[in-house]
Computed example of a mutant assay.
Amino acid sequence: MTQSSKQTPLPPGYRLAEYTIVRQLSVGGFSIVYLALDDDDRKFAIKEYLPRNLAARHPNGEVTVPLELDRDAFNLGLKCFFEEGRVLSAIAHPTVVRVSNFFRANHTVYMVMEYAEGRSLARELELVGGQMQERQVRKWFAALLSGLREVHSQRLLHLDIKPANIYLRRNGVPLLLDFGAARQTLSRTDKHFAAMYTPGFAAPEQYDKDQPLGPWTDIYAIGACLYVCMGGDVPPGAKARLAGDTLVPAAKAFRHQYSRELTELCDRCLALRSDDRPTTVLEVQKSLQQEVYSDPLRETAGEGNRLVGWIKGLTGGRHGKGTE
């Protein structure tokens, strides 16, 4: 096992171009993210391409590929990572993480992104007890999808949308982080990366390299996020659902807490067949932006009234007094 299995981070104080590393923020199978300061003491998040199964850290900070057989896979991921940074740097949208710079150093690539103050949607869910108000769900996801539409218009997919990758700024504006398009490219071409997706949020086609990926793939993940925000557990992995679907539909699980329109939208997004999902992110966004939608409490009361009427019919209107 190489040193890369530990993904040794750059140390605090390390100079990287015009930036100084402060500390590590996060690490994944594909990269390390650091908090850094530029020469004017402005904060940035810097993502370093460092796939743990392919690369190792040399003591001088440089990234090496110990096995020559892994060189092509490493270079492919590097190319995709660089292209992702190039596309994101051209997108200026308040709900998409802004890439201000990307450069080569240490025989790898670095992506310099805005550093936002706030917390993840996953943490927000913990703080509110695992269930969010419908009004807030609609507001945040409609805003988020506006940015995702911009991403899709640039022919880039996210491919790893989940509550941990949705950040809530202190001003309440959501932010889409940590794109997984380059990771997914590697997972489809190299055996080392066969599991580089998030079960429960990854669409069925992400498990099958013969199936095309597209906006519908991100839409599945949005559906999973909506399901979790309404109080549900993370859906079973798509492979398990294909073998025998045990997911309780949102329209059934949450019909007493959320509108019929929202729960049915969630179920459509989570359809196993991509053709059964909404066609575009715009379609999902418009549904979330509806200002008039059904009241689950009123519908529940209606169900109760129908039940009372049914019981009265059985008892001949005697209100449970029995026959004479």
Rank of each mutant, 00 (worst) to 15 (best):
V173G: 02
D190M: 06
F179D: 07
P199M: 03
D178V: 10
P215W: 15
I161L: 15
A251E: 12
R170Y: 03
P249S: 06
R241S: 11
P215C: 13
A181E: 15
S187G: 15
R260K: 13
E205G: 07
L175F: 09
F179P: 06
I222P: 06
T198D: 05
A164M: 04
A250E: 13
D190R: 04
L186D: 03
P163L: 01
D178W: 02
A203H: 04
L156I: 02
V173R: 11
A250C: 10
P249D: 11
F201M: 00
G231M: 11
A221M: 07
T185K: 15
Q206M: 11
K191E: 13
A253L: 15
T246C: 05
D218R: 04
G214S: 11
Y207G: 01
Y197T: 04
A164N: 06
A182Y: 08
C229N: 05
R255M: 13
R188P: 09
G180C: 06
S187W: 00
Q257D: 12
L186Y: 04
Q211L: 13
R183F: 03
D160W: 01
G231C: 02
A250T: 10
P174T: 07
M230Q: 15
N165F: 02
P199H: 04
A221G: 08
M196R: 04
A240N: 08
G214V: 06
K239P: 00
P236F: 03
A251P: 01
D218V: 09
H158I: 03
R241L: 05
R188F: 10
N165C: 06
P163K: 05
P204M: 08
A238M: 02
A250H: 12
F179G: 05
L176A: 10
S259C: 12
C229M: 15
R170C: 02
N165E: 12
Q184P: 00
L247C: 07
H192D: 08
S187M: 14
L186I: 01
D245R: 10
C229P: 00
L175S: 09
L213S: 06
L213Y: 10
G237S: 12
M230F: 14
C229Y: 09
L247E: 13
V173S: 12
P199K: 00
Q211K: 13
R241D: 09
L157S: 07
I219Y: 14
G232W: 09
Y167V: 01
F201L: 01
G200T: 02
P235I: 14
D210H: 10
G231S: 01
F193C: 03
S259W: 14
R169A: 08
Y220E: 09
G232V: 07
D233A: 15
H192M: 03
K252D: 12
A203F: 03
G172F: 02
L247G: 06
K162I: 01
A202M: 10
R260W: 14
K191Q: 11
